[in-house]
Amino acid sequence: MNERLKGIIENIGLPRLLIASFLLLLFIIAPFVGVRVDTSINDVIARFAMNGILVLSLFPMIKSGCGLNFGLQLGVIAGLLGAVISLEMKVTGFAGFVLAIIISIVFAIIFGYLYGLLLNKVKGEEMVVATYVGFSAVSFMSIMWLLLPFKNPDMIWAYGGEGLRTTISTEGYWHHILNDFLSFQIGSHITIPTGALLFFALLCLIVWAFFRTKAGTAMEAVGSNPDYARSCGIDVDRVRIQSVIFSTIIAALGILVYQQSFGFIQLYNAPLMMAFPAIAAILLGGASVTKVKMWNVLLGALLFQGILTMTPSVINNLIKSDMSETIRIIISNGMIVYALTRRMKVRS
């Protein structure tokens, strides 16, 4: 009995179990401290739709054995470029969003290819190199946001300043373009962002389908056992680059969906730390450095966003102090540290 219990805990993973019960507990005590459960659920759903794609973007790279994408910011930058260029062209509404997507994908392919080349050269040290590539890309783009010749007055500083603003509103362009698509209400406080959820689902479907094609099968094999793949005549390095490009594209789309929901394009240092929450979420969902399944993405995004939504409201009401940020830091980074210390198969 005890053995079985241990087995179950081992299977789900202790941290996951703890955090899931913590979240459950938060929901239970929420009404008692004056936090409405329905608004909380509404927030969780909105944030799930908003952040889920960024979590999904980690999927291809874990599958191909490239590990956790600590350089997620490259995809984010591609998305930002798509967004600001689309705004610069003053294309509004759905067309503007599609244009942003197309431009982002072009940048994501270029960035992903170069990033993939680099990661192949530094096999074994991918994660630490990726982290700093991500950081330096963000800070490099900070310079670029200042220097690039954007003209749209909605985006540049109104007076005196130089370059693009730190936050640019998507209002009037494609604000909530996906969230409001087919959205409906449940009760008075729950609004379902149907379009964003559908888009997320569509991307999940595309990723799922990709791993059922020849190329996807090869990618999964490279991740499972690169030596096996090589002995089957697969160009392991090429497949890894493909996975990096794929991840980067999804991350770019992810940030676009984030922006349309959030209402702002955040430039400069905003994307600096974006990789960590996404990574923490997928790990929370049950993925490891080497293994991932689709449900890890969904569960992870839901749990993580649940914690992020619930801790500020409930904990703050409970102990009258704002510990949510600290709890977020401890949970998300603790999750990553935990995953990094799990023993994994040693591969050459």
Binding site: V122, V129, S136, S142
Partner: peptide, 29 residues
């Protein structure tokens, strides 16, 4: 632009680390 120099510092810091670590891993191989 003085702000530019500020961003440049940060870029240098991260860039140096990324570049050195990548160069090291690559050279080892």
């Amino acid at each position: 632009s003085a702000q530019l120099g500020e961003y440049f510092r940060v870029f240098i810091t991260y860039g140096v680390i990324a570049f050195s670590l990548a160069l090291y891993a690559w050279r080892n191989r």
